[in-house]
Design a protein around this nucleic acid. Structure first.
Lengths: 135, 135
DNA sequence: AGTTATACATACTATAGGGTAAGTACTTGT
DNA sequence: ACAAGTACTTACCCTATAGTATGTATAACT
């Protein structure tokens, strides 16, 4: 990670850093504001679209669907649609998606600690977070 | 995290989700593509600006400085400047910043596993990653 | 003189992400 | 008829982030 790459194209440079830094690899797949939050929602098991949306009050439908598509494209989640009307769609994590559990859980742990230090507290304690029963 | 908030302002809704979902709390501080990468670079100890830049070949100076400022504002890193010319600036993680080590390390672990499954390998193995000697 | 080192700042432009509003399709219930 | 449920899609606009180019200041070296 201390190697200096020659200036080829930006894309080639990005690919190169991608191969050298594991966190870059992760950011390529889950970087941004919403993806980790969505993945965290699914840690506790499959969820219907409507439940996902309820669990993330501030996301717009447009952004949620967009992010879900990207996560599906990265093979981190599976979308299962029943051939019924009204639609019935369920999202669940893949094995690779579940592999991010330690990342997401470590985030939650850090958030609790950091918030306590700053005088803020969560309305729920850690016991109620998705996946926490297996920690 | 299954509570539905009434539609007040977007900001108030964001604040509310912020208090209810720990991952949202983390995203507010380190969400995006570059911040985790920068923090990962500093896991192994303080670095000068120039070394940071070398360690992240694809980032522009503008973006690096901008992100460093934001991370400093979130109290995740400290910037120390010597009163000399040419400038001599060192960045290091705060205690809170170091608290994210498990997050970043879990990312690295996942990246290695995921990349192996997809036939890609990193040019370095996990032993050489910042902070790995303490795992 | 020009170059190099160091760590930025600024102006302008381009790209990406996000928000709002309206719409789609079908069924069921009032 | 309208409303509600379900999970999207599309058009347009705005905001945020990122990229490119140029510049700053000082000292030391060629």
């Amino acid at each position: 990670m201390t190697t200096i790459k020659e200036n080829s194209t930006i894309q080639a440079n990005k690919r190169s850093a991608f191969e050298e830094c594991p966190v870059t690899y992760v950011m390529e797949k889950i970087g941004g504001y919403w993806k980790p939050i969505i993945l965290f929602q699914l840690l506790s098991g499959p969820k219907r679209y409507s439940d996902l949306k309820k669990g993330i009050p501030d996301i717009t439908e447009k952004v949620l669907i967009q992010q879900l598509k990207q996560l599906e494209a990265e093979n981190l989640l599976i979308r299962e649609a029943k051939p019924v009307v009204p639609p019935h769609v369920t999202y669940s994590l893949t094995k690779a998606g579940m592999g991010l559990k330690q990342v997401l859980y470590a985030m939650a742990v850090w958030a609790v600690e950091d918030s306590v230090e700053h005088g803020a507290t969560f309305r729920r304690n850690l016991q109620h977070f998705p996946g926490s029963e297996e920690a």
